[in-house]
Design a protein around this nucleic acid. Structure first.
Lengths: 193, 193
DNA sequence: GGACAAGCGGAACGATCGCCCCGTTTCCAC
DNA sequence: GTGGAAACGGGGCGATCGTTCCGCTTGTCC
């Protein structure tokens, strides 16, 4: 299936990496709204060069997002290595990772919001990996009694998305984890009252 | 201060109302992103007519938002009439009102997100009324032991904003209150563990 | 009913932004 | 070196959208 293809020329490889790095920073800081010319400017290349390496702005965006999703999926799968007795802490620690670490990345929220973007098949693998690991973490935490029953992965998605946007809004504040703590406590079994 | 001014001509008054109503629906459904021509079309007027009544798109948006904020502020102040013994339920019931009733209104979320908009002095009165009532409801609920301490109005804002966006994403789902329930439980005092 | 201003509509303008084109530069094999 | 292909860059095109302008219509007042 993969066509036999020459390796990229040295300068092309260098420029591709520059564009990706500039895009990573720009998308993280400004979200999908950042003009493509701005990315090209930051990368020190022309707009045409960006389009040589990535056919559309969306493709470039996806390339950045896939990276992030893969990283998160890796961490989620690592959390699955915890023994069942630690399923609760493993779950909540991973949520913390997402919320604190990714909460300031506008691109992730834009991608999750599907802000005018249909994420393609490229992102599907990474997203599926993350989803499955997240679902498994949730199930184990529920089995361990650390998370209330009656929550499914769709609920978790919605809550995480909301918490991410909320965390992002308070990113300039002093304590990055306040919203995360509130949301996580909402997932725990209700207080006996 | 107010200049002596002729009353609007009958057709002008009618058109103004039509534009406001069309804008209300359009902004609620599509958010701030809806093109102004679309609003004019829905109202059955030309774009020029919209600009005769509202100097900018933002002014029109504000007119719609102020309405919504006023309505919410009214309900929040009504909730303040509850006796202190009912402070907890009054607080959570009002949160439900916001989350379920306003969760499907894209304009509110856009406005809260400050999505490219600097809300002006016009909105300030309504927003302040809502904020103060909300803060008072929170303080009373905390005094009644129904809401954990260590939460301030800024936390509440962030969480509400996140919950609104999350609720909005699940608006097509079957149960409108799932996210709300989770978020509210996160505000309650922690389970004794 | 007639005059006149208020109001109307929608074509047109300007800014923004994604995307393409093509003359020029740079790299690499021989 | 040098020829030729790969890559570059930035000007420009087309679409979208907020806003303005102006010739025409319509309500209002005598």
């Amino acid at each position: 299936m993969t066509v036999e293809t020459r390796p990229l020329r040295a300068d092309a490889r260098r420029n591709r990496a520059r564009v990706l790095e500039a895009a990573r920073e720009a998308f993280a800081a400004e979200g999908l709204a950042v003009p493509l010319d701005e990315i090209a400017r930051r990368a020190g290349v022309g707009a045409g060069t960006v389009y040589r390496h990535f056919p559309t702005k969306e493709a470039l965006f996806e390339a950045v997002i896939v990276d992030r999703l893969d990283l998160l999926a890796d961490q989620a799968e690592a959390a699955l290595a915890a023994p069942q007795a630690q399923a609760g802490p493993a779950f909540f620690e991973f949520l913390d990772v997402i919320l604190v670490d990714a909460g300031s990345k506008k691109d992730l929220v834009d991608a999750l919001a599907g802000a005018g973007v249909d994420l393609r098949a490229v992102t599907l693998n990474s997203a599926t990996r993350l989803n499955e690991a997240l679902g498994e973490l949730l199930a184990r935490a529920q089995a361990a009694g650390a998370v209330r029953s009656g929550i499914d992965t769709a609920d978790l998605h919605a809550v995480l998305f909301g918490a991410l946007t909320a965390e992002q809004r308070r990113a300039d504040a002093e304590h990055p984890g306040r919203v995360a703590r509130l949301v996580c406590d909402g997932l725990r079994p209700p207080a006996a009252d």
